[in-house]
Amino acid sequence: MKRLPKLMFALGAVALAVTACSPATGSGDQAGGAASGGLREVNIGAVPVVDVAALYVGEKQGYFEEEGLKLNIEFGQGSAAMIPSLLNGQFDMLYGGSVNMVQAAGQGLPIQAVAVGGRSTGVEGEDHGGVLVLPESGIENAAGLEGKKVAVNALRGLHEVSLWASIRKAGGDPKKVTFLEMPLADMGAALESGRIDAASTSEPFLGVIEGDGAKNIASLYVDAAPNFVGATYFTSTKMTETDPEFVQAFVRALEKSFAYADANPEAVRAELGNFTKIDPALIDSMTLTSFKWGLTTEDIRVIADLAAAAESLENPDEATEAVTAFLNKQ
């Protein structure tokens, strides 16, 4: 595998640059504060992956302004760590892993899904999530991860739960894998140095690491389920109950954003360069998420069942019912 100094710089730049490049220039101390021009500021916590470009596309097209909204996006390592900030009012919305969402609901936290965040393409080897190893590792598929150290951005989160499905599909035992929590931006260097044997990651990090010579051995989202919903937008139950008009306005603008992103992939790629610092040549080759609109109770049930199968959720039925309350009223 080629050496990774360029990779380390690129991923470090992603981690450092994303927060400063949010569409909204201001940030209030309280969620839902007033923004310039009479627009309502929407504070969104997110993970810096390719799906989030739909927000930037939608704001550029004026869809959120049409609904009286202005976006302020702040990035973190994982959605589980940002849920407390959602519940205390720092954020109005979170974009994050669907697994973290159902787990939180399963623990009794008052959160509800409002919209899809991103889906698998459904195509093996051509998805926006993957598991990367060094070509000389001898690991050929997910079953080969037994006895190995695999980096995920959140323990028991989206990547680990999905990877349990991949490992089992390949005939392996996920209980024999050691999962290590690590920021997405650090995985390339850790893989190169030998601190980990595999990195479970998503675009834009997937394309960067793979472009420097790593080998993709599993499309974990494809293995999880057809049309797998890997990410969602969700908010607090308090928000859906006290201000449903705001939630509906956000969802309307987001739906238009997804439709435009789906029809104009070049617009999505153009926005990636505005909130990450990555070589444009790599952006052109990245696999985009599926921007197919819609989120159903069945989508959530699939996620909850996968989490339960990975021993990361005790009662998938209760979690599904809790997190779909807003969806079922629409």
Rank of each mutant, 00 (worst) to 15 (best):
Pro5Tyr: 03
Met8Gln: 14
Leu11Phe: 05
Ala13Ser: 13
Ala15Ser: 15
Ala17Asp: 13
Gly26Val: 14
Gln30Asp: 15
Gly32Leu: 11
Ala35Glu: 10
Ser36His: 12
Leu39Gln: 11
Asn43Pro: 09
Ile44Pro: 00
Gly45Asp: 07
Ala46His: 02
Val49Gln: 03
Asp51Lys: 04
Ala54Pro: 02
Gly58His: 02
Gly62Met: 10
Glu65Leu: 06
Asn72Ala: 14
Ile73Met: 08
Ala80Lys: 11
Ala80Ser: 15
Ala81Arg: 12
Ser85Arg: 13
Asp92Val: 05
Gly96Ala: 11
Ala104Asn: 07
Ala105Leu: 07
Gly108Glu: 10
Gly108Pro: 09
Ile111Leu: 12
Gly117Ala: 09
Arg119Glu: 10
Glu124Met: 13
Gly125Trp: 09
Gly125Cys: 09
Asp127Cys: 04
Gly130Met: 05
Val131Tyr: 00
Leu132Lys: 02
Leu132Met: 09
Gly138Arg: 12
Gly138Glu: 11
Ile139Phe: 01
Glu140Phe: 03
Gly144Thr: 05
Leu145Gly: 08
Glu146Gly: 08
Glu146Ser: 10
Val152His: 00
Ala154Phe: 12
Gly157Tyr: 01
Val161Met: 08
Ala165Pro: 03
Arg168Ala: 08
Lys169Arg: 15
Ala170Cys: 01
Pro174Asp: 12
Leu184Asn: 13
Ala189Asn: 08
Leu191Thr: 05
Leu191Tyr: 04
Ser200Ile: 04
Phe205Thr: 07
Gly207Leu: 03
Gly211Tyr: 00
Gly213Val: 06
Ala214Glu: 05
Lys215His: 13
Val222Thr: 14
Asn227Lys: 15
Val229Gly: 02
Thr232Gln: 14
Thr242Asp: 15
Pro244Phe: 03
Phe246Gln: 07
Val251His: 05
Val251Glu: 03
Arg252Ser: 08
Lys256Met: 13
Tyr260Lys: 14
Ala263Val: 08
Pro265Asn: 10
Glu266Val: 06
Val268Phe: 06
Arg269Phe: 03
Glu271Pro: 01
Leu272Cys: 06
Asn274Pro: 02
Ile278Leu: 13
Pro280Val: 02
Thr287Ile: 14
Ser290Asp: 11
Leu295Phe: 08
Thr296Cys: 09
Thr296Ser: 12
Val302Ile: 12
Ile303Arg: 00
Leu306Cys: 08
Ser312His: 05
Asp317Ala: 15
Glu318Arg: 12
Ala322Val: 01
Thr324Trp: 00
Phe326His: 06
Phe326Met: 07
Asn328Val: 07
